[in-house]
């Protein structure tokens, strides 16, 4: 072949052809795999919600094991009895409220004329009504998010946290069992007023036996992740307070 590969015109044509070919190939693959990836993302949300409610397959003391895939849908349908979202004080039923994208809702809510949709999942476990709220905030490096299960007095029954890119061994520990378990029994309210939950250093309660102090013990070396987590809980859960107030009456 007598192609002069050093010519500028050849270089440009080569680059263009290559980019087009690669672009087509990748978009094709992405289209083929998309249904699978979406199904995995849905399953992950369902698992996280169930985990926050205490429905999991934990065995050892440090396990974080989700409900397995084959019984996931069945468990989800059993435990989650009602899905809806709150918008401008109205309760709107939506059987797939768990698919609402919190990130997008928050973006839309930057426009003050838009009322953010607040998804809420009502479930029953051991005869007790639970409400699971999604939360989303910022850690040190990137997004952190989670699900918080409370009873009607806004006392936490279980949580699940996850993160995109916190430091392994430090901030990434928010998804460890020993941290998440600390939240159980803590209340978002203090004397009936919304207080939130602080992730506090040196609170003289490292074993977290005092459940009325609105505090859990912080992770060493993860101050900013912890603060971000506390802010996330305060800001996002506060939006639900009117709903829980209305439950009391």
């Amino acid at each position: 072949m007598a192609i002069n590969t050093e010519k500028n015109s050849y270089t440009v044509i080569f680059a263009v052809v290559m980019v087009v070919v690669v672009g087509l190939l990748l978009s094709g693959i992405s289209q083929v795999l998309k249904p699978n990836i979406d199904a995995n993302k849905r399953a992950e949300k369902q698992k996280n919600i169930l985990y926050a409610m205490g429905v999991n397959e934990n065995q050892g003391a440090n396990d974080v094991v989700f409900v397995s895939d084959d019984i996931l849908q069945e468990k989800f349908d059993t435990y989650i009895t009602e899905q809806f979202y709150l918008q401008g004080g109205e309760k709107v039923d939506d059987p797939e409220a768990y698919l609402i994208d919190i990130k997008k809702e928050k973006k839309k809510a930057e426009d003050p004329s838009y009322d953010q949709k607040l998804p809420l999942f009502k479930g029953t476990k051991d005869g007790k009504d639970l409400y699971v709220m999604p939360v989303r905030g910022k850690g040190l490096w990137d997004a952190i998010w989670g699900f918080v299960a409370v009873d009607e007095t806004m006392t936490i029954q279980g949580v699940f946290f996850d993160h995109k890119g916190e430091t392994p061994g430090l901030g990434a520990e928010i998804k460890q069992r020993y941290f998440m378990d600390d939240f159980e029994g803590e209340s978002f309210l203090d004397d009936g007023q919304f207080e939130g939950i602080a992730v506090a250093k040196g609170n003289n309660d490292p074993k977290n036996e005092d459940k009325s102090d609105n505090e859990v013990d912080a992770l060493a070396g993860a101050t900013i992740t912890g603060d971000g987590l506390a802010t996330m809980l305060r800001k996002d859960v506060q939006k639900y307070v009117p709903f829980f107030k209305s439950l009391q009456n």
Binding site: M1, I3, T5, Y10, T11, F14, M18
Partner: peptide, 11 residues
Amino acid sequence: NIIPSKIRIIV
């Protein structure tokens, strides 16, 4: 044999 050597790293 067809990669232009000027842009080979990018390729």
